[in-house]
Amino acid sequence: MLQNVIDQRRHSLGIIEVGRVLPHRERRMVGPFVFFDHMGPAQFAAGLAKEADVRPHPHIGLATISWLFDGRMMHRDSVGSVQEILPGEVNWMTAGSGITHSERFEYQRAHGGPLHGIQTWLALPDGMEEIDPSFAHIDAAQVPLIEEAGMRGRLIAGSALGLSSPVPVHSPLFYFHLELQPGAAVPMPAGEVAAYVVHGQIEVGTERIGPGQMAVFAPGAKARASAPTLLMLIGGEPVGERYIDWNFVSSSKQRIEQAKADWRAGRMKLPDADDQEFIPLP
Rank of each mutant, 00 (worst) to 15 (best):
H11A: 12
L13T: 13
R20S: 11
V21D: 04
P23K: 03
H24L: 13
R27Y: 07
P32L: 13
F33W: 09
D37P: 03
A45E: 05
L48I: 09
L48P: 02
L48Q: 04
E51G: 10
D53N: 14
P56S: 05
H59Y: 00
I60V: 11
G61D: 06
A63R: 07
I65L: 10
I65S: 03
S66F: 01
L68A: 10
F69N: 05
D70V: 07
M73Y: 00
M73F: 00
H75C: 04
I85D: 02
G88W: 00
M93T: 08
A95Y: 01
T100I: 06
T100Y: 02
F105T: 02
Q108Y: 03
R109T: 04
R109G: 06
A110S: 15
H111E: 15
G113F: 09
G113M: 05
Q119G: 07
L124W: 00
G127M: 07
E129Y: 01
D132W: 05
S134T: 13
A136T: 14
D139N: 15
A141D: 12
Q142R: 10
G153Y: 00
R154F: 08
R154N: 13
S159I: 00
A160N: 06
L161F: 12
P168C: 06
V169I: 06
H177K: 07
L178T: 08
E179F: 09
Q181V: 08
A185G: 03
Y196T: 11
H199D: 06
E203N: 10
E203L: 13
R208S: 10
G210N: 11
Q213D: 07
F217I: 15
A223M: 04
S226A: 12
P228A: 15
P228D: 08
T229L: 12
L231S: 01
M232N: 05
L233M: 04
L233N: 04
G235K: 09
Y243L: 14
I244L: 12
S250H: 05
K253T: 14
R255T: 08
A265V: 05
A265H: 13
K269L: 08
P271K: 00
Q276D: 12
Q276H: 14
L281P: 06
